[in-house]
């Protein structure tokens, strides 16, 4: 027990005294989050349509201005309004003449043009009805229903956490490969130390660092992007399960490789596609149809899915039971293989 405590402390000191280790464990996920958040995080309420109007009648524009969907700018001449449209100042330009309304738009804003066309038609119709002395009998009433709204960042943060824990687990085994390659582990066999203790202390420290990373990423997410802090601690179970799976997978790879270079290569080959094909950064619907099957094979997909649901409340894609079964499956198989083919020397 005394040796185990000393080993845990030694692992911790050794890791925390290395700037590179600190960077990869703690700085990189945060930097990654910031970059991703800044690039893809611009979002918010759907922006208003920028509309330029040239009104030869004078009434319609005032009515248009009441719509909260539109921001209306009056232009005197159609030519100057169109110049502004071409310059990107307006999404649309409406030219109102007697008995005729022209709607100018660019191909990029075809959708907005369509929406506005409907809006304009109903407005003009309503105005006409009123002029004729009719009042519309059927009113349309808008009722706001609260459903959770998830921003890109909400989706993304559990993904970063999943990625960071995967990398910690996989790359963590390299220390062991390096000690083995330099025959340090073999030579330790001449001391009374039970070598299992070295391994278990390493695993324990890695799991501890996993939880530290989790806290750090959640804190950074809240600080920089106001991503909700998980309300229930149940996600910690998933952090534990996911970390264990990837630590086990890391040692499994270590068991099948001889040198640190080959282990590093294989880990890169495993983690790189996983990072991009597991749907942890964007919903799998954004992926081409032909690639949709791949996420269903990778443990990171299920880990990310469970974290998104338990941390943020995003509806699960596979169902928590499937997430659990498949992660347990990966853990079990990789643990078995790691133990079965384990090599101290």
């Amino acid at each position: 027990m005394k040796a185990f405590t000393y080993l845990v402390l030694a692992h911790l000191k050794n890791a925390f005294r290395d700037r590179m280790t600190l960077f990869w464990f703690f700085v990189f996920p945060i930097v990654f989050m910031l970059i991703f958040g800044i690039v893809f995080g611009r979002e918010g309420a759907p922006s208003a349509f920028m509309v330029g109007t040239v009104d030869e009648e004078g009434e319609t524009t005032a009515t248009l201005g009441k719509s909260d969907l539109l921001r209306v700018f009056q232009e005197g001449e159609i030519s100057s309004a169109l110049r502004a449209l071409r310059a990107g100042k307006y999404d649309l330009v409406i030219h109102i003449q007697k008995g005729k309304v022209m709607l100018y738009y660019s191909a990029q804003n075809a959708g907005k043009a369509q929406a506005l066309e409907g809006h304009l038609k109903s407005m003009l119709l309503e105005a006409e009805l009123r002029r004729e002395g009719h009042t519309p009998t059927t009113m349309v009433e808008k009722i706001l229903v609260e459903i959770p709204h998830f921003r890109q960042m909400d989706y993304f943060l559990p993904g970063i956490l999943a990625m960071a824990l995967m990398q910690l687990g996989l790359f963590g085994s390299l220390d062991f490969v390096s000690l083995r390659e330099r025959k340090i582990i073999r030579h330790l066999g001449a001391t009374p130390l039970r070598r299992e203790l070295l391994l278990w202390s390493e695993i324990m420290v890695r799991m501890g660092v996993s939880f530290l990373q989790t806290g750090l990423i959640i804190t950074a997410g809240w600080l920089f992007f106001r991503v909700q802090v998980p309300e229930s601690p149940s996600f910690l179970f998933w952090v534990l399960l996911g970390s264990a799976t990837f630590v086990s997978l890391g040692y499994c790879i270590a068991s099948f490789t001889k040198t640190i270079e080959s282990a590093e290569g294989i880990i890169q080959m495993v983690q790189f596609p996983m990072m991009f094909l597991s749907g942890i950064f964007f919903p799998p619907e954004m992926m081409p149809e032909s690639l949709r099957l791949i996420p269903r094979l990778l443990p990171l997909s299920y880990f990310g899915d469970a974290l998104r649901h338990t941390m943020i409340g995003i509806p699960t894609q596979f169902g928590l039971t499937n997430d659990l079964l498949i992660l347990l499956g990966w853990l079990g198989v990789s643990f078995f293989l790691a133990v079965r083919f384990f090599r101290w020397e």
Partner: peptide
């Protein structure tokens, strides 16, 4: 040759 088991100890 086990002195460098933990290089940063």
């Amino acid at each position: 040759q086990i002195a460098h088991l933990f290089p940063r100890l």
